[in-house]
Design a binder for these strands. Sequence first.
DNA 1: ACTCCACAGGAAAATTGGGGTA
DNA 2: TACCCCAATTTTCCTGTGGAGT
Length: 406
Amino acid sequence: MNPFDKYSIQTIPLKGDISILTASHEPDSFPHREEQIEKMVNSMRGIVMGMKTNHLLVYGKTGTGKTSVTKYVTSKLHEKLGERLIISYINCQAYDSPYSIMVNIAKNVPGAENIPVSGWPLDRIYDELVSSMTKAGTSLIVILDEIDKLVEKNGGDSLYVILKLIDENPGVLGIVVGITNDTSFYEKLDSRVKSRLSRDSVIFHPYNADQLKDILLPRVSSILKPEQYEEAAINLCAALGAQEHGDARKAIDLMRISIELAMLDSSDIVIRDYVYRAREKLDSDILRDTVKTLPTHAKIVLYSVILSIQVHPNSATTGEVGLFYNKMCNLLGYTPLTSRRISDYINDLEDYGMIGTMLKSLGRYGRTRIIRTSGREDDIKRFILEDSDLEKLRDVNLSTQLKFEQ
DNA sequence: ACTCCACAGGAAAATTGGGGTA
DNA sequence: TACCCCAATTTTCCTGTGGAGT
């Protein structure tokens, strides 16, 4: 007997591809975004006529469609202009130096494709890019997603160079489209960048539950028959997405996972219960992913935080975490990082929402951060131990921890 | 009122490592 | 081969600070 026999091949027969409910799906209709599309088209219309055009800033929280819509509008423009337009999409989280951004732009420019990813002096790349662009005589749209990362990291140098590239070379005709979720982004810029970047902006407001439903419904009905899902399940996904600052991505992910769970369950209808379970799975998947992509030492720091709290629930401090950290590095055979670095990792972990810290002064006993965990320690520990290099940490139990203190 | 702890967190130097040219 | 370019990460060095103890 085949042990797989108890699973039927596909309980819910899908009419279409479930990838329509993933983040990588690029739709060609955007409910409740007509206004933004029009505004974007309007501010880019000069490009069609080969005119100098203002740069554009796009604001909106995650899952409000800013990236999708930007890609959609620019691709339509590309359809219209064909070879005469080069579009360069750059995620500034991944590429944030003047060097890497220019290399990325160059990849799409005819005659400049073979600039190496490192080695050349910066100005050589710059000159190469300018001359190739001038020769090609094309327009350029540089989409800088998460453009705020450029300012945080190196004081706006990258942004300045890119703006200069476009603005100061007559042969280079193009615009920068900056995408950010930081509404105070413009204020953070230094003046040399500010003056080049106009205040031309498009704002993407969060979706409300009704709007999210309008997004979900057509997609769901393209893959499921009406009798295969409860409308209440869709409503719930929409409501949960709306709760999360109007996040369409979240609503869509929930919907997809709900359907997948229903299928695994051999259910023939997607009901609300699957949405609740999807929410838990999604949260846990996100946490696992965050933990897994942490640098090794950050994981050790995180583990130290958790142990430290187990020993001293209310007084886990930076110093104490450092102590645990050093011991664990010894155990694992790593050379420990400096306390300064650990301090930064603790900050990073807080940004990721995995721990909470509170600056507190203990008077005579110094000033330090009191660290708390987010209540998901067990999962976090489990995910850390999934790293094969850190398996040894499993053996660290409370009694050996107490020995650390002597 | 004054000290001084135990750090926070900024700035800059140093190290590492990708790759280039001559 | 020796040496330059740039990015990223970490170390070194540093100044700043709230409040318990005195």
